[in-house]
Amino acid sequence: MSTKKTILIADDSPAMRALLVSTIEVLGDYRIVEASSGFEALRLLPREHVDLILTDINMPDINGLELISYLRNNSNYLTVPVIIISTEGSLKDIEKGKRLGANEYLIKPFNPDRLQALISSYLCICP
C-alpha cells in the first residue's frame, strides 16, 4: 500500500505543469497527476485519490471556477484543499474562486518557496 499523497495539477500549459512538478518534486515523495484541461481533471478525480489540487483559472472546456464549484458541491471532494494559480489579470475571478471554496491562491509569477510552504502545510508528511 502506498502512503504517498497525491497532488492533481490542472493547467493547460505543459511548461507550467512541468515547472510545478519540478517545484513539488524537491519537497519530497508526492505522487503527481497532471490534467491538461478541466475535462481531464474531471475524468481523473474519481480514479485517483487526490489529496490536494492546484488549478489554473483560464482553461479550455471547463475553467478553474467551474472545477472548484464541482468539487465543493460534491461530497467526495468537499474537503480536498484547492490552491488557485493564476495571474493578476484574473483577480476578480480569483476572488470568486475563494468564495466558491478555494483554500489559497498564488499569483504568477510566484515564489516557489511560497508554493512549497503551502503544500507542506496542507499535506504535512509527519514522521
Binding site: S13, G89, K108
Partner: peptide, 28 residues
C-alpha cells in the same frame, strides 16, 4: 486573450521580464 494571458504567466514564471511586460500590456 488566452494566448497573451498564458504567455504572460509563463514568461513571468520563467523570468523573462520583457516578454512578461509586453504580453501583460497586450493582455490588458
Amino acid at each position: 486573450f488566452r494566448g497573451a494571458h498564458s504567455l504572460k504567466g509563463l514568461a513571468g514564471m520563467f523570468g523573462y521580464t520583457d516578454i512578461t511586460e509586453l504580453s501583460h500590456n497586450m493582455e490588458n
